[in-house]
Design a protein around this nucleic acid. Sequence first.
DNA 1: GCAAATAAGTTAATTATTTAACTATTATCT
DNA 2: AGATAATAGTTAAATAATTAACTTATTTGC
Lengths: 157, 157
Amino acid sequence: MKMRVAESVDPHDDFPSSPARSAVVAVVRGYGIVQKLMEPYFAQFALTPPQFQLLTVANRLRRNTLTQRRLAGELYVSFPNVTIMLARLEKAGLIERRANTEDRREKFVRLSRRGQALLKHVWRVHQRQLDRVMAGLTAPEQKELTRLLNKMLAAHT
Amino acid sequence: MKMRVAESVDPHDDFPSSPARSAVVAVVRGYGIVQKLMEPYFAQFALTPPQFQLLTVANRLRRNTLTQRRLAGELYVSFPNVTIMLARLEKAGLIERRANTEDRREKFVRLSRRGQALLKHVWRVHQRQLDRVMAGLTAPEQKELTRLLNKMLAAHT
DNA sequence: GCAAATAAGTTAATTATTTAACTATTATCT
DNA sequence: AGATAATAGTTAAATAATTAACTTATTTGC
């Protein structure tokens, strides 16, 4: 006769907590809420968060001849990803690509006038949005959070 | 005659730093490195990070009749997303779905035997991986990081 | 100087995510 | 009881991300 064994609760069926586990979970959740708040915010400007990131990098490095390779490195993202995002942003008229005449493998990326104008438009209200996201923490706490995350990051570079 | 104005550097062309901005950037980068480390790790087990998350939630709530709706809520993710992920996990034999006979709109989700076995297999080496990710921080620092992120989160719920 | 290696970019296939629109089932309200 | 509302899940279309495979252009090394 087959015993109907155990739908009983097995205490070994759960993974134990630890400081490292809690911290990883908190980082993932923290990022989650940041995304949840930033997505509708950027949607106002017909942008997604990664698109905004790309535009800001293109703006910051606007004095350089910015290749797609370099851009991928700055964004910590794969090359094909950059290809696809640039295709969309170019279609939207926010960036421009032109081939390097000296090395025709390369293409230089830069903001279009529309891209520059959009970035400035966003910036006029951007600080307020960032403050809303971090509203739960005092400024010193925000600095401490930054310090800890950067220290964690530094161990992997 | 058209003046060749100014490819000159405009100091207003950059967004100013602030504690809130640095903190948001740090959270995004911190999440980035966590993902970069966890993806190849989970790939060992033919899993992605979101799939692992789903399995752990299904395990944690295994004593309940877990609907897809509930699952989406626990994962902070949209309903269609859960539909698609479950389809893949079911195909891989890691979860099972069965319709609620009392309300045929609903489907209950649970881990299959293979899913349970896989989870236990991962857990045998999981703490070591989490410690690697947080290696740059001491245990008290990990706890402080967790506290700050949870405080930030609490302001949005 | 030409063949092989390297580099930049694109395309293809897979997974994850969203919102909007749809189907099927159950509950509500006169 | 029957029309309407609400709820659970799925499908569709879009964006983002990955790795692998491919094309084209430049360098390197004999």
